[in-house]
Computed example of a mutant assay.
Amino acid sequence: MYGNFQRIPYPIHKSPMDGDTAHRDLDWVYASQTDRIYVLRAGEFGVTRQQKLDLLQNVFWPALIRWVISRQQILPGGTVVGGWWRADMQGMMDWYRECLHMTARWEDAIIAHTDGIWRTALETSPFRDWPEFFLLLNEPVVDENGQVVRDAQGRIVYKDRDPTVDGMEDAFLDLWETIANSRPLANYVQRDALKDGNLLASRMRAPDVCV
């Protein structure tokens, strides 16, 4: 059903979103529905969650980055105009939800708002290593008396913060929108979308595109 001969190539020359909105581009929608990695659930016919994340990280994000670069201007003094917009991340999270067979925003906004997909999108995005997100992703471990736990060297011990807590998605979007354009896109090498066969074996890390 999803053989290579039936595949519609991803239109990587343009954004996965419709212009500057969070709405998905129809050409990308059509292509995604012919991609077995995208359409099938994790666990079906050998498709894994990691393969789905590889697809989003190595095909969807680079295409969006190219679009952002094309509309971006850096003014004298370093001010960025027309770079990343909130709709970019909102649209990408919608792609993640569909690819991972989660509830869409337009199906149930309350469920989608607390599904924690923002963390998955961030950790497979070009912003994944930015230190500004550390406290959003982690929280100090406290003991039964409410005191912060420290290790033998006196350093605070952290644990993963629950991404599904109400308000976390908004907190992430607010922070991301504030800092997304604080660094220029750099070290980005344009490349063609990977074919299904390569994605099936892919475990490679996406190129660093932000510094």
Rank of each mutant, 00 (worst) to 15 (best):
A109K: 05
T79M: 15
R105C: 15
M102I: 01
L40E: 15
T114P: 00
G116K: 05
G46S: 13
D115W: 07
W118F: 02
R128P: 04
W130M: 09
D94C: 11
M93N: 05
G78A: 09
W85K: 07
I65Y: 01
R49M: 04
I65A: 14
N58C: 06
I37R: 10
A121V: 07
T79E: 11
M89E: 10
W85G: 03
A31Y: 02
L40N: 14
T79P: 08
G82Y: 13
G43N: 11
T124F: 14
W84G: 03
V68M: 07
R24E: 10
Q50S: 01
A31M: 02
R128G: 07
L122D: 10
I117G: 01
G116I: 00
L26Y: 04
R128C: 09
R86T: 15
W118N: 12
P76E: 14
Q51W: 02
M102E: 09
R24G: 07
W130P: 03
W84L: 11
R36E: 11
H23C: 10
T114M: 07
L53A: 07
Q33F: 15
A31W: 00
L135G: 14
C99N: 09
A63P: 01
R128L: 08
H113N: 08
S125L: 11
E132D: 14
G77R: 06
R97M: 06
T48H: 03
R71C: 09
G116Q: 07
V68Q: 11
G116E: 02
G77I: 09
V29Q: 09
I110D: 13
A63H: 00
T124N: 13
D35E: 13
A121W: 00
R36T: 06
R66H: 02
W106P: 01
F134T: 14
R36L: 13
L56M: 00
D88P: 04
I65F: 04
A31T: 01
G83W: 14
R24I: 12
R105W: 13
E98D: 08
Q57D: 06
A87V: 04
L135T: 15
L136W: 03
H113V: 00
T34I: 08
V47R: 05
T34F: 12
L56D: 02
A42K: 02
Q33L: 08
R105Y: 15
F60R: 02
L26P: 05
H23R: 13
I65D: 11
Q90M: 15
W85Q: 00
A112K: 06
V68C: 08
I110R: 05
R36S: 13
T120F: 02
T103F: 10
K52A: 01
P131E: 11
P131V: 02
L135R: 08
L26M: 15
I117L: 03
L75E: 15
Q72F: 14
F60E: 11
E98W: 00
T103C: 15
R86V: 12
T103W: 05
T34D: 08
Q51V: 01
H101K: 09
G43S: 04
P131K: 05
W130A: 13
F133G: 14
R41H: 00
M92H: 10
R41C: 04
G82M: 12
M92E: 02
H23I: 04
W67F: 08
F60V: 07
I110V: 13
Q73I: 12
M102K: 01
G78F: 06
D54P: 03
V68Y: 02
